[in-house]
Design a protein around this nucleic acid. Sequence first.
DNA 1: GACATCGTTGGACGGGCGTCCAGACAGACG
DNA 2: CGTCTGTCTGGACGCCCGTCCAACGATGTC
Lengths: 206, 206
Amino acid sequence: MTRTDTDDRISRPQAQKFEDRRCQLADSALEALAARGYARTSLRDIAQSTEFSLGVLHYYFRDKVELITYCVRRYKARCVERYDAIAAHATDADDLLRDAGDGLAATIEADARMHRLWYDLRAQSLFEESFRLDVADIDASLEQMIWRIVSAYAELAGVTPRCTSGLAYAAFDGLFQQALLRYLSGDDAALDDLRAGTRALLTRLV
Amino acid sequence: MTRTDTDDRISRPQAQKFEDRRCQLADSALEALAARGYARTSLRDIAQSTEFSLGVLHYYFRDKVELITYCVRRYKARCVERYDAIAAHATDADDLLRDAGDGLAATIEADARMHRLWYDLRAQSLFEESFRLDVADIDASLEQMIWRIVSAYAELAGVTPRCTSGLAYAAFDGLFQQALLRYLSGDDAALDDLRAGTRALLTRLV
DNA sequence: GACATCGTTGGACGGGCGTCCAGACAGACG
DNA sequence: CGTCTGTCTGGACGCCCGTCCAACGATGTC
């Protein structure tokens, strides 16, 4: 029960090392999934994107569903980090209009493949019930992020929002998804239109 | 070269019968795909949803990709029929606000599984280039349908739309997709919120 | 009636899938 | 030192996948 620092460094890892490796494997799996999509990624593909063999995946995860589910949760953890960065501080309404659009455009440029995977997995959840809870969880946190932007803008503009957070999320999600599709298809105007659309939606929904 | 009526009825079918059967098979395939999703539907599943054997699929289609592509095009043909029905005639702006929301809600109730398949295939097209052209084609026709509603509303309201057709489509698509997800998850308020959201978007985007 | 042609069947083929396991290996412990 | 425990490997298993094909009945042609 009484532990020294050395004890912690040595005996803690029993469970901690296990969890760390799960994270490491899940991160590699996310890379593989983002590259080829859910339907075309096998456990062998995933193992090949790690430095381990196929058997290890079943040592750390019961089956494929548990691995993917763990990946989705891990993906969410990354999302939350990223979204907290967007529109963290803006001093007036016009700044926020610009920052919000720039933030969304920047995350498309930086993480297009991950966002693509998100829409893939969300579509999968329409068929595979085992994904639905985790997807709904991520969806809720995305809705909250959008709502933080919308209500921040409303406050800076000195009004109260006239729409529900659900409507705001739906509209921005559609806008973002369209921009992603166009960006990945090589449409150069996609990001500029996303910025303009963000401005238009924000000013008209609140 | 000179044909009688009888000639037409008998010799035309050479190619026509072939095309008819392709349609018939594609319709059955769409049923199977809508039921289980792209990733989980094999050619054997599809064959089982028809009254024919597996070999027939390869008699009428070169490979799986050609079959799926043909299905997607066929799906689009159905879409166009359906969309022409929505908001075909409304005499004043308030009627149109109601009809548009009711139309979207009705098609979710009637064709939820097909719409689910559409979002699945659109997500697939993010990874599989061979689907991209057909998906873009359908997306464009959906955008036109939305724009017909938006511009009809603007005209009845005596104003000109203040948004691009791309923005309108993005926002309505997001709204529709959210409603579909909630509807399929058993959320009873999904369709009412879709109606309210349609009204809100229409009045604020124009 | 003999003969092509078309549409269809049922099964074979190689390969990739998710899963599982016997054993090798290393470090901690008695 | 031997033993045990936690990791990891490589390969085997059975199943299902997309594809392909030899054979057959039906149908229309000469």
